[in-house]
Design a protein around this nucleic acid. Sequence first.
DNA 1: AATGAATGAGAGTTCATTCAT
DNA 2: AATGAATGAACTCTCATTCAT
Lengths: 180, 180, 180, 180
Amino acid sequence: MIDARSRRQALVLAAYRQIAERGFEGLRTREVAAEVGVNVATLHYYFPTKEALIKGVVGHAMTRFRSTLTGVGTPSEQLAAHLKGLRKLARAEPELFAVMGELALRSARDPAMAGIVRQTTDVWQATLRSLMADSGRDADALATLAVATLKGIYMLPTTTSPENRDKALKALEMTLGVAR
Amino acid sequence: MIDARSRRQALVLAAYRQIAERGFEGLRTREVAAEVGVNVATLHYYFPTKEALIKGVVGHAMTRFRSTLTGVGTPSEQLAAHLKGLRKLARAEPELFAVMGELALRSARDPAMAGIVRQTTDVWQATLRSLMADSGRDADALATLAVATLKGIYMLPTTTSPENRDKALKALEMTLGVAR
Amino acid sequence: MIDARSRRQALVLAAYRQIAERGFEGLRTREVAAEVGVNVATLHYYFPTKEALIKGVVGHAMTRFRSTLTGVGTPSEQLAAHLKGLRKLARAEPELFAVMGELALRSARDPAMAGIVRQTTDVWQATLRSLMADSGRDADALATLAVATLKGIYMLPTTTSPENRDKALKALEMTLGVAR
Amino acid sequence: MIDARSRRQALVLAAYRQIAERGFEGLRTREVAAEVGVNVATLHYYFPTKEALIKGVVGHAMTRFRSTLTGVGTPSEQLAAHLKGLRKLARAEPELFAVMGELALRSARDPAMAGIVRQTTDVWQATLRSLMADSGRDADALATLAVATLKGIYMLPTTTSPENRDKALKALEMTLGVAR
DNA sequence: AATGAATGAGAGTTCATTCAT
DNA sequence: AATGAATGAACTCTCATTCAT
C-alpha cells in the first residue's frame, strides 16, 4: 500500500542514513533494501544501479541543505539567522552534515558529484557574499572564510567541546561583522 | 635486499597515496602490494590485516602533519609561520590533506581512529591556543575557529579560486591578530 | 484492441526474432514483451513460462519450414524446386535457419524439443526420399545426405563465399540426380 | 599438488564438458569450479572472466579438431582416412562436435569467436580442397560440399539411424571420388 | 622473507515469475 | 486483459585473508 514516490524516497532515506552512519565505504544495497523492508531486487527496480541510488541521496542532501539558505530581514539579521539555522540543523539532523562531508570528499574523485556539490556550495557562498556586500570589507574573502569555517565545523567531526565550538562560531560572527 | 623497516614504509606510503587518490572506498590491498612490487601475501606478512595497514597510514599522516607544528620566534611570528607552512605543505603534499580529510571523516565511525586523530588535533589546537594566549582575547575560541577554518580549507576540496582562498586565509590571520 | 490470437502471435514472432539475433542464450522475456510493447506480466498471461513461449517459437519455425515441403511436377522437378525454394527462403528469411540451428542444437539436451524437431526433420527426409525413390540408387542414403548437407549449409553460419555455396549446392543436385 | 598448467586445463575441460552437455546457455562458472573441486574464486584466479574461460574452451576444441587434419598417403587415401578419422572421433569424443556446433552458432553473434572458428574451418576446407585438386572436378565446390555435409552430420544432432548416417557418408565419399 | 594458489563471504546485478489491482 | 510492483534465486565477479612451500 505504498506508492512509488514514497518508496523511492524511503530507499533514498535509508541509503542516506547508512552513508551517514558508515560512510560510502559501508553502503550496501542489500542493507538499504532491508531497512526499508523490501528485497534487493526491488531496490534495483527503482534504482537500476547503486550509483543511481547515490545520486538520489545527493539530491536529497542538497535539497535539504538549500532549504536553509533563504531568509528575511536585514543582511546582518539574515546572516545571524543563517548561522543560528545551521546550529539548529546540526542538532536536529547531524546526519545531513555527515553525508555532506562524505559527498565533499568524494567530489575530489568523482567529477559528476563534484559538479552537483559545487553548485550548492556556490549558491551558499554567493548568498553569504551578498549578505556582506555592504560591510565595506572584502565580501568575497569573508564569504570564503565563512564557508570554509562552517564546513570545518559541521562536516568534519569536531574534536572540541560544544562550548568551544559555540565560542568559535561567535568569533566567526564577529569577524563577519554580524551586529548583536 | 630491502630491510623490513623500509619495506613496511613503502607499503604504508603506497596505501597512503591510494587513499589520497581513491579514498578509503577505493583502497585495495592487492593494488597497494602491486604498487610496491610485491605479492599481496607479502603485504599481509607485514600487516596482518588491512586495518593494521591503515593504522600505519594514520601514523604516517599524523607524523607528517605534526612536523609542521614546531616554530621559533615571537608567538605572532610563529603563528604566521604556521599558516605559511600549511600553505606550502598544501602545495607540496596535497595528498596529506586529502588523507587527513578521509581520516577525519572515518573518525566519526571508528573510535580507534578517532582517538588517534583527536590526539593530533588536540596538539594542533593547543599549539595555536598557546600562540594566542597573550592577545587579550579568547584564545580557546580563536584556536577552535582557526582549526575549523584550516580543516575546511585544506581537507575538503575547495570550491573557490586559489585567490579567494588566499584572501580568506588573510582574513583569518587578521582575525587571529597576526601582526604583519 | 488486439485480439488474443494475434497478440500471442506477436509475442512468438518477437521471441523468434530475438532468438535469431542473440540465440537462446540471449532470449529475455522482458525484451520480448518490450518489443511487442506490453508488460512482462502480460507476456506471462499468454505464456505462463518462458518454455511455453519457446514452444510457441518452435511451432512457428516448424510451420514456416514445412510450408516449403510441398511441390508439384515430376520428382526431379520437385527436388529442384525444393532446393531452389530453400535458397530463396534463406535469402528472404535468414532468421528461420538461424532459429532452426538453435533448435537443432537444443534438441541434444531437451527431449521435448528433440521430439518436435525430429518430427519435422523426418517429414523433410521422407519427402526427399520419396522424390528419389525411382532413381535406382539408395534413396535413404541420399536423402540423409541431402538433409545433412542442407542443414550444414543453411543452419550453421557458412564460412565460404556465396558463390562457393552455390557451387556446392549444384554439386549436391548432381549427386542427387536432379535433371537439369 | 597440482600444477597451474593442469589446473587451467582441468577448468577448461570441465567447461568444455558442460558446454557439450548443456550448451552455452547452461554454462555456470560455479559448476565448472565445482566439477574440478575448487572454489569459484579459484576459477577466477585462472580466468578473470567467463569469456576468458570460454576462449580457453574454444582453443581446446580447435586444437582437438585440427589434430585430425593431418594425413599420409595418396590424396584419395588421405580423404578416406580423414572421413574415417572423423567417424572414430565422433564415437570417441562426441562432445567435441557438440561444442563445435555451439561455437559455430555463436559465431553468428560473436565476431571474435567467428574469427577463430573461421580459421579452423578454412584450414579444414583448404585441406579437403587440396586432396581433391587432381580429381578433374571443381575442388572448391566439392570441398565446400564436404565441409557442409560433415558439419551437418556431426555438429547437429542427427535424427536418423547410425546406419543411415553411415550410408550417407559413403554416398559422400563416392561424390568426392574416393577410390575404394 | 616471500609467494602462488586457494578460499569464504559477500558484493552488485539480473531474470523469470507472481500478485494485487 | 493488462499492469506496476515485488520477489527468490541465481548469476558473475571481488576481496581480504590464509596456507603450504
